[in-house]
Design a protein around this nucleic acid. Sequence first.
DNA 1: TCGAAGAGGATCCTATAGGATCTACCGCGT
DNA 2: ACGCGGTAGATCCTATAGGATCCTCTTCGA
Lengths: 222, 222
Amino acid sequence: MGAPLRRPVLVDDVHEAIKALIMDHRIAPGARVSIDGLARDLGVSPTPVREALARLESAQLVVKEPLRGYRTTPLLTLDQLDDLYQFRLLIEPWAAARAAGRAGEDGRARLAAELAAADAPDDDTYAAYRAFTAHDARFHLLVAELAGSDQVRQAFQRTHWHLHIYRLHYDRGIGPKALAEHRKISDAVLACDAAAAEAAMREHLERSYYGRLRPTYAEGDR
Amino acid sequence: MGAPLRRPVLVDDVHEAIKALIMDHRIAPGARVSIDGLARDLGVSPTPVREALARLESAQLVVKEPLRGYRTTPLLTLDQLDDLYQFRLLIEPWAAARAAGRAGEDGRARLAAELAAADAPDDDTYAAYRAFTAHDARFHLLVAELAGSDQVRQAFQRTHWHLHIYRLHYDRGIGPKALAEHRKISDAVLACDAAAAEAAMREHLERSYYGRLRPTYAEGDR
DNA sequence: TCGAAGAGGATCCTATAGGATCTACCGCGT
DNA sequence: ACGCGGTAGATCCTATAGGATCCTCTTCGA
């Protein structure tokens, strides 16, 4: 009687399943997504599939064409990726500075715990890669949360940056450097040094993108 | 044969209908929203209602409680309103500066046209009030669009600030001043003066909020 | 008088069916 | 050979039905 705490809402499971299909490229970018087809494959009725796709649409992972069905969005272009990081550079350094000034005891503890639990992926296994990206997503979201502004946190969250970047799967083997930069940001926040936190976050994003992700993406263009 | 171009997508109409119900307080803030009940009232089946509510959820106008239905979100508290305008102050001055530097011929023409078409509401009629709020929403969205960043435009749009502020309906009779400030912003953008545009937008938001909207809201608390 | 267990009603969730629309293929005419 | 109209299939959209869950009111016992 202890175990069954999973909520019996099928639409959530369907939502996760479709998201996984898109992220792992089991549904190609730009391909059409049949509602009835998905329902058959997943063994459910079209109704929850329809609702799940409506949610995915707000995450920009699919687009709806009335009377013609849904279609997966294409991968981010270089311009869109530039735009995404420009937005992150507008939001996140600000959030880091605010977090340094406003985070309470509880928030600081959570930040320290997140850093302590994060291991640099010392091998190239897929599992280690996924574990680091999960930490990456949690860390940046936590900083946004500690800034104390729901609007900023939501705006940041609704970019779904980790989903889109994960679809590109171009950022392997960057764990140790990023982790060190995360620690630098965390130290500044814990020291209540707003200026240092802002600078560290800005530096982290610029190095991550212009120094690592973007060159990899640009050379991988086809 | 010319007229009937309305798309036969019922869910869009349902979405607009429900949004109107919430905005006009025909469904009280915090009240429960029955799926079947709405379907009966609107004369449609629950399926499109369900999909429309899923969309409204991303606009924060309703929240879903699994197995318990949907509920309208309460009106924005003063803290949330502060937070909303803090976010606008982070985004919109930046967008105005970028718009001044990047807007093309087409964009400038659209901006000029929007200003030319906007009349200051010289009377206190409801129609004039609604016309001004419509211009207000279009103007700020246009500036965000002219900044040339989809991420910023979407982040701004997804706040649905005009929906939430309209629910408060506390900002009557501010048309002429706001319109003059809009014109100042527009002039700076059209003159390609990024610094002036940024300053004008910041001044406009601060005056609108701290000088007009917030005092009205604060005195109207119950 | 207060608290708890049970029955009734309403609601949500999922599945299935029918009508409307779009896409693809095939045959015909120029 | 090329373009156009018609038909068949698949898909989407909406409506309806049944099973499961939650809320509320009533009733019983301490």
